[in-house]
C-alpha cells in the first residue's frame, strides 16, 4: 500500500453561465499523503472551492467535469452517486464554514453528532451514544451527558464550532476537506479553529484546507499548493515555500500579508471567463517575457513543482 491517500490528476471543471464558461479549475494535479495537512491557498474567486466540491462530487449540476480523482486507490470520480454517498462522511468528510448553518437547529446536538456513526459505521444506538459522549468530551463539550441533549442554539459559537468538527470526524474519516474555515472570523476564533484542527490532525487524519488565509495555512499545513485563476501554480513543502516561494505570484502573495508589510500585487485578478493566454499571471508578472504567452510547463523539482517558464 502506498502512502498516497488522495490523488487528483488532470481535473478540469468549467461552469457555463450567462456570460460564458467559467473555467473554474484547469488541469489540477496533486496528491495528499496519509496523515498530511495539505493547504490549497488562493484568492477568492480563483476556483479553489470548486476544486474542493469536485473532489467531493458536489459540483453544481451544470458543471462540466473531466479528470480523475483517486481516493485510497479507488477512482471516486467514476463511482455512482450511491457509492459516493457511502464515501462522503466516512472516508472523506467536509467541515462547513458556518456552524450555525451546518447544524440543524431543531435536532439535539448529540443526535446530529451520532448520525454519521450510525449511518457509516453501522453502530447500534447505545454504541453510537457512548461514542458521541467520548467525542464531545474529546472536544471539551462538557459535561457530555448534558450537552448532548441540548440544541444548537444553547451552545456558544465556539462550542458549536467544536461540535461541528465532532460531527465531521464522527465516522473516523481519513481525510477532512475544510473550505474556508476561517473566513470572516476574528483572530481569536481563527486560532481556536486551528487548535481544534491540530487536535484532529494529531490523531492521524489528513486535511485538505481550502483557504485564502496565508497565516492559517502556514500554521497548519505540511504542504501548500497555490491556486491562481483556476490553476495550481506551485506546490511545495511548507518550510520551503515560506522560505523561498518560486512562482512570481507566490512571492507577490506572501509580500501582501501584513507580516511582510502589505505590498499590494499590481493589477487585478483576471476574469475566469476570458482567462489570459499562456501563463495566467503574465499580465501582472514583473518577470514576464515573450515565452510567457505560451502555456508554461509544470516544472518538477525535488519535492516541489511550479508552473512557470522561469524554471523551465
Amino acid at each position: 500500500m502506498s502512502d498516497v491517500l488522495l490523488k487528483v490528476s488532470g481535473v478540469s471543471v468549467s461552469i457555463p453561465t450567462g456570460q460564458g464558461n467559467v473555467h473554474a479549475v484547469d488541469d489540477a494535479a496533486f496528491s495528499i499523503n496519509k496523515h498530511e495537512v495539505f493547504s490549497l491557498i488562493g484568492e477568492s474567486g480563483s476556483g479553489k472551492s470548486i476544486l474542493g466540491q469536485a473532489i467531493m462530487r458536489l459540483l453544481p449540476p451544470n458543471a462540466v467535469f473531466s479528470g480523475k480523482v483517486e481516493l485510497d486507490g479507488t477512482e471516486i470520480s467514476a463511482l455512482s452517486e450511491k457509492e459516493m454517498q457511502k464515501i462522503r462522511g466516512k472516508t472523506v468528510a467536509s467541515i462547513a464554514q458556518n456552524p450555525y448553518l451546518a447544524m440543524n437547529p431543531g435536532i439535539r446536538v448529540g443526535t446530529q453528532v451520532a448520525e454519521p456513526m450510525r449511518a457509516h459505521l453501522g453502530l447500534s444506538k447505545e454504541d453510537a451514544k457512548a461514542r458521541t459522549r467520548r467525542a464531545l468530551k474529546y472536544f471539551d463539550i462538557l459535561p457530555p451527558e448534558v450537552r448532548e441533549r441540548e440544541y444548537p442554539f444553547q451552545y456558544s459559537g465556539g462550542m458549536l464550532q467544536r461540535a461541528m468538527v465532532a460531527m465531521g470526524t464522527a465516522a473516523d474519516p481519513e481525510l477532512i476537506i475544510a473550505d474556508e474555515p476561517t473566513k470572516g472570523v476574528d483572530v481569536l476564533k481563527r486560532r481556536n479553529i486551528a487548535a481544534i484542527f491540530q487536535k484532529v490532525a494529531s490523531e492521524g487524519c489528513a486535511f485538505l484546507l481550502i483557504t485564502h488565509d496565508v497565516g492559517f495555512a502556514r500554521a497548519m499545513s505540511d504542504r501548500i499548493a497555490v491556486n491562481y485563476c483556476g490553476q495550481i501554480i506551485e506546490i511545495a513543502g511548507k518550510d520551503a515555500f515560506f522560505k523561498e516561494p518560486l512562482h512570481p505570484y507566490s512571492k507577490a502573495l506572501l509580500d501582501a500579508v501584513p507580516e511582510r508589510g502589505m505590498h499590494p500585487i499590481p493589477g487585478s485578478s483576471p476574469s475566469m471567463i476570458e482567462v489570459p493566454e499562456g501563463c495566467r499571471f503574465h499580465p501582472r508578472c514583473p518577470h514576464k517575457t515573450e515565452r510567457c504567452l505560451a502555456d508554461p510547463p509544470v516544472v518538477e523539482m525535488a519535492r516541489r513543482c511550479v508552473r512557470c517558464w522561469l524554471y523551465a
Binding site: G158, M159, V187, L188, K189, R191, K199, G215, F216
Partner: peptide, 19 residues
C-alpha cells in the same frame, strides 16, 4: 499578549474555552 499569540498561532495545543 493573547491576541498576539492568536495571530501568530502560538501554542496550538490548547483549545481555548471562550464560553
Amino acid at each position: 499578549r493573547a491576541l498576539l499569540d492568536a495571530v501568530r498561532y502560538a501554542s496550538l495545543d490548547v483549545v481555548l474555552q471562550e464560553e
